[in-house]
């Protein structure tokens, strides 16, 4: 069971990892239900580095086959929530 505090911590971990890759992004401007890569200029190397960062930080390894499930920030947070809880 995740608490609201865990959720906020997860969100912060994602934003901090993202801003290491794309420092120009301000999290408050991101629309959580819109595809992330439409809002942030991430090429495949940036995306890979983002996932490496999340792996280091949260210990969650996202298989390549799951990339397509992770279009929006909401998708990603939901996915990570399930993985962290598992």
């Amino acid at each position: 069971m995740t608490t609201a505090r865990d959720d906020a911590a997860l969100r912060q971990a994602v934003f901090e990892t993202l801003s290491r890759i794309a420092p120009e992004v301000s999290p408050s401007e991101l629309e959580p239900a819109r595809p992330l890569r439409d809002q942030v200029d991430l090429d495949s190397m940036d995306w890979l580095n983002f996932l490496v960062g999340l792996h280091e930080r949260l210990g969650v390894d996202i298989p390549e086959a799951d990339y397509r499930k992770l279009a929006t920030l909401d998708d990603l947070l939901g996915y990570l929530r399930r993985k962290v809880a598992a």
Partner: peptide, 17 residues
């Protein structure tokens, strides 16, 4: 590439580039 990356941790995957 997909077969190669499958099962590899994220920091060992290879991009199409």
């Amino acid at each position: 590439l997909a077969a190669r990356n499958e099962g590899r941790p994220v920091n060992e995957r290879v991009l199409m580039a």
